[in-house]
Amino acid sequence: MDYNTLIVLIGLLTTGVLLGGFGALVCLKGENLTADVAAHGVVSGVVASQGIVALFGLAWLDVPLLWVFGFASSALTLGFIFWARGRGYSAGASQALAIGLAYGVTLVLMSLVQGFGAFSTKGLTTLLLGDAATLTIGRVMPALVVLIIIAAVFAVLRRGLMNWVLDPQSSTLHGNQQTLELIWIGATVIVVLTCLPALGLTLLVGGMTLPALIVRPWVKGFVPLVMASAIVGGVFAMAAGWLSAGVLPLPTGALVIVSLGVGWLLSFMLVRCLGIIRLDHAA
């Protein structure tokens, strides 16, 4: 195995574990589509940062600006969702308005930037679909660091986290709901940003949702669900990456998600079969 393939596999393993573990929390809260909207919110920040770089000739600030503006636009989009919910809109209506806003801002910014300077939308396709095959150690490192931090936070605060995820009323009673929501927005945006290079913003939500759905019928308890989702996410992502590198030369991100989909289908069918066998034995 050559060095580049090794880096790609490490990147996919990290992304899979991060998305799987964090995704289990997101699934329990039913916030998967909010995370999807957050991912779409990144694009306007990316366009704005590229526009600033092109207009003012700040090529040396390219990467930091990309992170800062991506984070800011995604966090603002999530903030809009929570603001709309606070005004009385349902979760679906707030998400739909936020994604319409994010897309609208992106398109208007894009055409303005294109009107004033050179900017190609082709680079955005990579953002939308991901490009795991070109992962470098520099693009893997943020995900690895975030994974270590989140794992440490989870190890220390797992009981409090469980209470907050499964019983949101308890945090309201303690009066720290707003703080926890801000932390949640920050964590979601950071996970989304660090996982974008591998899977892209459209497939990312699949990496958050499918591992939890695969393991849900087989585990009991909060911690086993999160751990098993993380492991399944990592294993599937790495296996699909390995297949994509050699046996099946197909787009890696899509292969990861489709293989997770097949895994979910198999898990679902196996649970059904075992249920039928148990009923048969009981009879």
């Binding site: 809260k29 039913g30 589509l33 995370a35 979760a91 990312l204 949702t209 759905l213 998600i257 489709v258």
Partner: peptide, 27 residues
């Protein structure tokens, strides 16, 4: 048919469809 929060079924299905589309585009 799942025990998670609202919208999980949408979030699970559309990336699979989109992924199949990307693979079909490549094939």
């Amino acid at each position: 048919r799942h025990s998670f929060g609202a919208g999980v079924e949408i979030a699970a299905l559309f990336p699979i469809f989109f992924g199949v589309g990307i693979i079909a585009l490549s094939l």
